[in-house]
Design a protein around this nucleic acid. Structure first.
Length: 273
DNA sequence: TCCTATGTTGTATG
DNA sequence: ACATACAACATAGG
């Protein structure tokens, strides 16, 4: 379920364990899909008795560094329905709990029903490749209007919606944030990336940044947002645009359910699905 | 039973 | 090599 803001919220939840040593690493199912490509035995022995030193999130990817030398890197991607939570140090694991870091005062838990998430591990002073080669953040100086314009030009025949889901340029943006961005920028999700006028490109670029910033600022502990956002109306049966009151439209665009306001976001044939 | 779900990746085709 | 489209992954809930 998680996108940029939910990922960072999950990371900060685990920060409750900063400075505390891991007494025990519990992996109920070492062969689970979330560990694909990962040496679970190295993870288990590498984190045991080591303190959690720091954490960081980048887009939808998180890293937790352990040890006095911070040389043990635990990478977590929450996939579609992954979640982090904190439990008492002794607790009964739930069905889809795949990684439990037991500390003296609490347990840090990674849970994932659909197994689309991922757990990575690296030991060494060098930055692991999966963390080093992440794309530049939407908040970084590299995220310029020119860079976005060039990206749109290269993907000129692709609809705006799937373009926004491309993590190499919009890391952290997912299905609901993409819809929120296009709704606020008043751009129809099925429009081709290459057909935007310069003013629209500028608006698109600014809105990506704005929605990412607001998402982090305004997210509640329950992953909720104000009713003035499109967010909560995407999943309603009918649903009305919180800005103009028109009935919202929905269709599969780029293989994902997309929601938009036909009055606020005109300019394209009415797609119906 | 069938459809849906806040994601990524591998594969096929142009 | 690059751009584009889509099935596949796994599970639960309506």
């Amino acid at each position: 379920m998680p996108e940029l803001a939910e990922v960072d919220l999950a990371r900060r939840l685990w920060d409750a364990g900063l400075g505390e040593r891991v007494l025990e690493v519990i992996v109920p199912k070492p062969g689970a899909r979330v560990f694909r490509g990962t040496d679970v035995e190295a993870l288990r022995s590498g984190l045991t008795r080591q303190p959690l030193a720091e954490s960081e999130a980048s887009g939808k990817q998180m890293v937790f560094r352990f040890g006095a030398k911070r040389d043990r890197w635990l990478g977590i991607h929450l996939g579609m329905e992954g979640d982090l939570r904190v439990e008492p140090t002794r607790f009964e694991p739930r069905k889809h709990d795949y990684l439990i870091l037991r500390q003296a005062k609490r347990a840090l838990v990674f849970h994932d029903t659909r197994l689309f998430g991922r757990v990575l591990y690296h030991q060494g002073a060098d930055v692991p490749e999966w963390w080093a080669k992440l794309p530049p953040s939407i908040f970084s100086e590299a995220f310029t209007r020119e860079a976005v314009a060039a990206f749109l030009a290269r993907r000129k025949r692709t609809a705006l919606k799937p373009v926004l889901l491309m993590q190499e340029r919009f890391p952290g943006v997912g299905n609901w944030m993409a819809d929120e961005i296009l709704w606020r920028a008043r751009l129809h999700p099925a429009r081709r990336a290459g057909e935007l006028k310069p003013a629209e490109v500028a608006r698109f670029h600014e809105t990506v940044r704005e929605v990412c910033r607001l998402a982090i600022e305004e997210i509640g502990p329950d992953w909720g947002y104000p009713d003035t956002w499109l967010f909560g109306h995407r999943w309603e049966k009918g649903g009305a645009c919180p800005r103009c009151g028109a009935d919202l439209d929905r269709a599969q665009i780029g293989g994902r359910t997309t929601c938009w306001c036909p009055r606020c976001q005109p300019g394209k044939l009415r797609v119906d699905g």
